[in-house]
Design a binder for these strands. Structure first.
Lengths: 136, 136
DNA sequence: GTGCTTGCAAAGAGTTTGCACCGTC
DNA sequence: GACGGTGCAAACTCTTTGCAAGCAC
């Protein structure tokens, strides 16, 4: 599994791969392998979950993997624009924040700590507008 | 395993528990269960890793669990003061950021999205001062 | 003594991998 | 036709759980 500097167009187009990409494009939140699997399975009943995992690996260059605190990885397309999400703890929906709240601090932080910042991960958890109305 | 509003002092003090707490206190970074296990094992060779996991659960109220992108959970004491870390991708050391870069944005973000923010997770990855000097 | 805690073994969940067949280019 | 992709089954890693014995209070 060595990276050979491939880009996406080097890969074969299969019906599984195409459907996986379509599922991710239509997703309104990052999806778990299981979720992608179920959605792909709707149209291609014979897929197995290892095909999902192998494609996540193959499409690595255009997909971001984030492991949440429940131990499950979520996958989504890399945004052209760097964004973060407000993640609802009840309905699990996620709201995209266009402006990265962290950006402004990054330079200072980097200088103050002599630390070369390469990437960061910010997830914000709470209750969305809809779920705040529901008394638990 | 229902929470009965216990606090830490409700729990029995065992040599395993005490050693685990000591290990976490001396840690300079959040530790995996495996790392805690190995350190505890040095003094109590008979411990098993399930004891570590069960104590992480028991001490939940004073410990924060964070799952990194490698799929492994890390545990550390909850800081009185909310902090974040600069995590070095080479040596894995982590540098504490006292001032939360996110705090200032929180109120605005919450209002703009009608989202009740309950918690957030911010991890910053890069290379620390020491590791920047080393050519890979 | 009671009930939480531990050690041990086995089970679970999520993810990865070996292998033979299949499909794309 | 070559080679990457897929289905299937088994393996692996991290974490959780049932049970009986042990230990703290």
């Amino acid at each position: 599994m060595l990276s050979k500097n491939k880009n996406v167009s080097d890969y074969k187009s299969t019906k599984q791969r195409n459907k996986i990409i379509q599922v991710l494009q239509n997703a309104e939140k990052p999806l778990t392998a299981e979720e992608i699997y179920m959605l792909v399975k709707d149209e291609l009943p014979s897929v197995v979950i290892s095909t999902i995992y192998r494609n996540m690996e193959a499409l690595k260059s255009i997909i971001v993997k984030t492991v949440y605190n429940d131990g499950k990885a979520r996958y989504e397309f890399t945004k052209e624009k760097h964004t973060h999400n407000l993640i609802c703890l009840k309905c699990k929906k996620s709201i995209v924040i266009e402006k990265c709240p962290f950006e402004a601090m990054e330079k200072n932080l980097s200088e103050q700590n002599s630390f070369e910042i390469l990437e960061h991960k910010l997830e914000i958890y709470g209750h969305c507008k809809d779920c705040r109305r529901i008394k638990e």
